[in-house]
Design a protein around this nucleic acid. Structure first.
Lengths: 151, 151
DNA sequence: TCCACATACTTCAACCTTAAAATATTTTTA
DNA sequence: TAAAAATATTTTAAGGTTGAAGTATGTGGA
């Protein structure tokens, strides 16, 4: 196998990877929209905050989600309007806000997260638990090595 | 292994999958922007058209790319402005347009595609050609079964 | 003190994205 | 052939995304 054809195989892997990822993502977006009138970015924000019951600052949230600061502002704005989140002032730092799920937000997220898990479970049914765990580990390693390349 | 923990493993697989996919995609977007002042959607359109030298109709393009009709309109508009694409009238059907790469567009795409392949080759270096081929096949199968679920 | 720098966040302009509505044209049907 | 249905595309409204610029506040020297 030449280096050149190895490169072609990796490209093919990426194209398949991207296609599968987009197909699953599109299905999730569609389900979120139809069943909950919501979106994947909103779900991602709720998921992040559900893991930090003390709340996160805007900048921490954008770190965790790996999206830009300005992006988070808009999504949080809309979730606050909808009563899913609250912004709480941080003592001794008038620049910062702590963002938290409201009780209603927690309830809403619990419902959506359960549905989300079952959609994934159906879509990835052809992966047995052993396989799933192996590939997940491999991807975790890949993602880590990518993060080391670009600090 | 209970069904419940199998579901949890599949969820974990999806989360890793998504994270890795987003990390790679982010790197490609960044490279395209910095090196070519372009974007992934533009690259995707050029890639699709490079496989069809006779050109594609707008609706065929949105089929191939699996994005909405209206979306393609805007991207093609900008690529036409930049001299990368042309819209050609279709004989006997005044509703439709055929979109093609210009000679300059073909040249531009060849350059970007070569760079793109080498970025992927570096990022996925830890996958040997055999591995890459195996996983690609598996993902192809997954994507196909997803397409059957949602026609 | 005060001034430079850093930090936290928002705003902005440009682009991507979708679903739904609108426009134009072609094809089918009554 | 006139009306209805189908097809091809664009427009629109709402949201997501980014990098860069802008605002406000905090911090650490000279």
């Amino acid at each position: 196998m030449t280096e050149d054809s190895a490169s072609k195989e990796r490209l093919r892997l990426w194209l398949r990877f991207l296609k599968a990822s987009r197909a699953i993502e599109a299905q999730i977006r569609d389900n979120l929209r139809r069943e909950f009138g919501s979106t994947l970015p909103r779900f991602d924000v709720m998921a992040a905050l559900s893991r930090y019951s003390d709340g996160l600052k805007m900048s921490q949230l954008s770190d965790v989600l790996r999206v830009s600061n300005g992006n988070v502002t808009g999504i949080v704005d809309r979730l606050v309007e909808d009563g899913i989140l609250v912004r709480v002032a941080v003592p001794n730092d008038r620049r910062a806000w702590l963002v938290q799920l409201t009780p209603r937000g927690e309830l809403e997220f619990a419902t959506q997260a359960a549905a989300h898990e079952s959609w994934i479970n159906e879509m990835l049914a052809e992966f047995g638990p052993k396989d799933a765990a192996n590939i997940a580990n491999r991807l975790e390693h890949l993602e880590q090595s990518l993060r080391e390349r670009t600090p």
